[in-house]
């Protein structure tokens, strides 16, 4: 489903972010990307949803080479990929319902679909009672669940989470990863970039370690 072949990426001539990455992620995999800050975790995720393009190597997603993908095709790629951020990236002026429905509306989805799918996904993440609340009325964990709901409402094939528990306490973090795990069980390929040792050790799934832009380990049995 996702394949990196000898990928080299740098943000400036002297600061490489990814160095010779070879990685293959299968459909329905649940992968943790771990490593210290600046190791290249976020860069790798950004390559998957084609926010950046590596200077050399190939990135294949859904069997398509993203390094050669024309700009007009990018929106259609992203409709199949959900992204979750550490800082949630919610719209403060919109309600929980508005934030989630926004992801469908910008694709021109009909009202009928919105009315059916948004409450469904909010119930799934446990926020059905907060439909009319605004982001600043929610806790960090709840805001992250809105973010997850927004990423899931389009029924993506791949879900990418960039430090989804970075701003949360350990207990809430476990709750968030449990939701993500349920998403994975339903058939979505899941990649979680994190440096949260606890959750990696608790969920014991494939773990790829990135240090200074290189993969230093890829353990299928998991653990930090």
């Amino acid at each position: 489903m996702i394949k990196f072949v000898d990928v080299h990426l740098a943000y400036s001539a002297s600061t490489p972010a990814l160095r010779g990455i070879d990685l293959h992620i299968q459909k329905q995999d649940f992968v943790f990307l771990v490593g210290s800050t600046g190791g290249g975790k976020s860069s790798l995720l950004r390559c998957v949803y084609r926010e950046i393009v590596p200077q050399s190597g190939k990135v294949f997603v859904f069997k398509k080479d993203l390094t050669k993908m024309p700009l007009r095709e990018i929106p259609f790629l992203r409709r199949r990929i959900g992204v979750i951020f550490q800082d949630f990236l919610l719209l403060p002026q919109k309600t929980v319902y508005g934030n989630v429905s926004y992801a469908l509306e910008v694709r021109g989805a009909p009202m009928k679909v919105l009315r059916q799918r948004v409450p469904e996904v909010l119930e799934w993440v446990g926020l059905s009672r907060k439909l009319k609340s605004y982001p600043d009325e929610l806790s960090g964990g709840e805001q992250q669940r809105v973010c997850i709901a927004r990423a899931l409402v389009n029924k993506p094939d791949i879900l990418l989470a960039d430090e989804p528990t970075g701003n949360l306490d350990p207990e809430t973090s476990i709750g968030i990863v449990e939701i993500l795990q349920r998403v994975n069980v339903r058939g979505t390929t899941l990649i979680v970039a994190t440096h949260d040792e606890n959750i990696v050790n608790q969920f014991r799934t494939r773990t790829v370690r990135l240090e200074h832009g290189k993969i230093t380990s890829d353990r299928h049995e998991g653990g930090y």
Partner: peptide, 10 residues
């Protein structure tokens, strides 16, 4: 940015 990330066309 959110629109771009969820797949809105330009």
């Amino acid at each position: 940015r959110i629109m771009q990330l969820v797949g809105a066309t330009n």
